[in-house]
Design a protein around this nucleic acid. Structure first.
Length: 256
DNA sequence: ATGGCTATGTAGCATAGA
């Protein structure tokens, strides 16, 4: 089963890219972030016509998550239980015996800002919830835009970014607490090219200059990781006209 | 060089992203 994540930065603008990409990459599950689309305006018919079922939790202007799947989406739930949050950032569903969690982790804006505090509080709630989810679902995958570059090799210029949001020690510590629960960063289970990134700033010709970060991740529970046969980033969509600033990441796992 | 793009909501720019 191929499972993917992609921050599309507006589903309305990126729908043609998404449909082209799923036709080419043929994922079984796709987690989307930053759909920026109210549920009433979600393009469900176009996605269903492409052969996917879909669940979504969105809002106007900001955030918004969705899960596409070739087969049935069971036990769909939105948000982190017990964590009050107006922002639509989490959606979970069970597909072929695999619990899929789609997450759009807060950006954090700047270290020390209110949004940074919110990011750390959010991550603490996320970790607590996943600790329980993992026990309930031994086959669980957590896919999404983490807005954290785990290690310096995930940053084009670690010196320039040192201590900044996306790489700061508390953010990385939160990421590695998820690893501490037993999750594997599927991308790093396999040999990868140097300077493998999933996001490049729209400005400064950052993509062409390979000035990116790896902040989109697929974390797998031990049971899923044991059956994982690959994980890769597809940079092709970033080369198109009007691209998302993020690219898809896809892993292959054994279905339940 | 602390900007630089892009998307949205809304009708000028402000906010946010990362």
């Amino acid at each position: 089963m191929r499972i993917a994540t992609w921050n599309v930065n507006s589903l309305k603008v990126r729908l043609p890219h998404l449909l082209d990409w799923v036709a080419r990459a043929t994922p079984d599950v796709v987690c989307l972030q930053e759909t920026k689309t109210e549920d009433a305006k979600f393009p469900a018919a176009d996605i269903e016509a492409a052969g996917y079922r879909v669940a979504f939790s969105g809002q106007k202007t900001y955030n918004g998550v969705a899960i596409l799947a070739k087969s049935e989406l069971g036990d769909v739930s939105a948000g982190i239980p017990g964590f009050e949050d107006e922002q639509k950032r989490v959606l979970a569903a069970t597909v072929q015996g695999v619990r899929i969690v789609c997450a759009y982790i807060p950006n954090g804006q700047a270290v020390g800002s209110d949004k940074y505090d919110y990011k750390l509080r959010w991550l603490a709630a996320f970790e607590a919830w996943l600790t329980a989810e993992m026990k309930a679902h031994p086959k669980i995958a957590v896919l999404g835009d983490y807005n954290i570059a785990p290690s310096d090799e995930d940053v084009h210029d670690p010196k320039a970014w040192e201590g900044q949001v996306l790489v700061s020690e508390p953010e990385r510590a939160a990421f590695f607490r998820l690893i501490g629960l037993g999750f594997k960063d599927s991308f790093r289970m396999f040999p990868q090219e140097e300077k493998s990134f999933s996001w490049w700033d729209y400005r400064m010709n950052a993509f062409k200059r390979k000035m990116g970060m790896r902040i989109d991740h697929i974390l797998l529970s031990p049971e899923l990781a044991a059956g994982c046969t690959g994980c890769s980033i597809d940079i092709e969509p970033r080369k198109l006209e009007r691209p998302s600033d993020h690219t898809p990441v896809m892993a292959e796992v054994k279905a339940g």
